[in-house]
Design a protein around this nucleic acid. Structure first.
Lengths: 146, 146
DNA sequence: TATTGTTATACTCTATAACTATA
DNA sequence: TATAGTTATAGAGTATAACAATA
């Protein structure tokens, strides 16, 4: 029995293996600053590109981040003119966020260049391995929001 | 076409989706301090439990962490008497690390209680979804070391 | 000279608590 | 009072650079 099997055969082993791999991948992804944007900044911008005119609170909930943390992410994106803030038409407390043309262009450019480091690692896998990850991706997405 | 599909159909989409899910999962896992040990500390201890008598350098390489970062992880584990350091028999520069009985007991206890938050989330998936993750886990492990 | 490990230092990401403005 | 957002502050995790000890 090899190690990968022993790690993932039981449910506890699956959780432990995933937890450790996720932490390690996260560390390595953070070290690869592909775009000038942190992973969190990129995620926020991409979410905003899909769901227009979100408030900071909605965006924080979507990304499972605390509002003050999101404030800083938003400030960094605004600083780079990748998003704009407009007042909510009826609720004076709220702010609406939208991606700018420059932000959309950056996202497009990123996708064109792909996510350099991770894409390269994916290319080194077999087609079958990639197929499994393609199936797993929406499950990981669901887990990350659960 | 739903969002998960559009995200994972292309290779760039797969990389982007995985990257964002991994970052979000990592954030949530870090927020769940199950054991008193951080994820990095747990990973180091578990690696040491499998491969006995590693040096700090080997452990850092194994976990894809820089040596000074690993120094701090090791110090925290030693402080809690979960590992011991012994001088290398022939190379005076090196140190050998080994899990203590207390460290092994902690790992065993952790596995018994499972990795609380993530295990709970896994229980909420269907059997089929878990089966896919079980296939994906060794691939993610491989990616995390690539 | 090269390698192992540590110390010093700093940066990024994120969190909690407290505050302001509006509802 | 309750909610949205921000500011102030702190902590965890990690990195790079510089150093000491040994090979």
């Amino acid at each position: 029995m090899n190690m990968a099997m022993s790690q993932t055969r039981s449910r506890a082993g699956l959780a432990e293996g995933l937890r450790i791999s996720i932490a390690r991948l996260s560390r390595r992804l953070r070290a690869q600053t592909t775009s000038g944007l942190s992973v969190g900044q990129h995620a926020a911008l991409a979410a905003l590109d899909r769901h227009h005119s979100m408030s900071p609170r909605e965006l924080a909930d979507h990304e499972k981040m605390q509002p003050p943390s999101m404030t800083r992410v938003i400030a960094a994106l605004e600083e780079q003119e990748l998003l704009v803030r407009t007042p909510h038409p009826t609720d004076g407390r709220q702010v609406l966020l939208d991606v700018t043309d420059k932000g959309r262009e950056l996202l497009r450019e990123q996708r064109r260049r792909k996510q350099a480091w991770l894409s390269q690692r994916l290319e080194e896998l077999t087609a079958e391995e990639r197929a499994i990850l393609r199936q797993a991706a929406p499950i990981l997405e669901k887990l990350s929001r659960a």
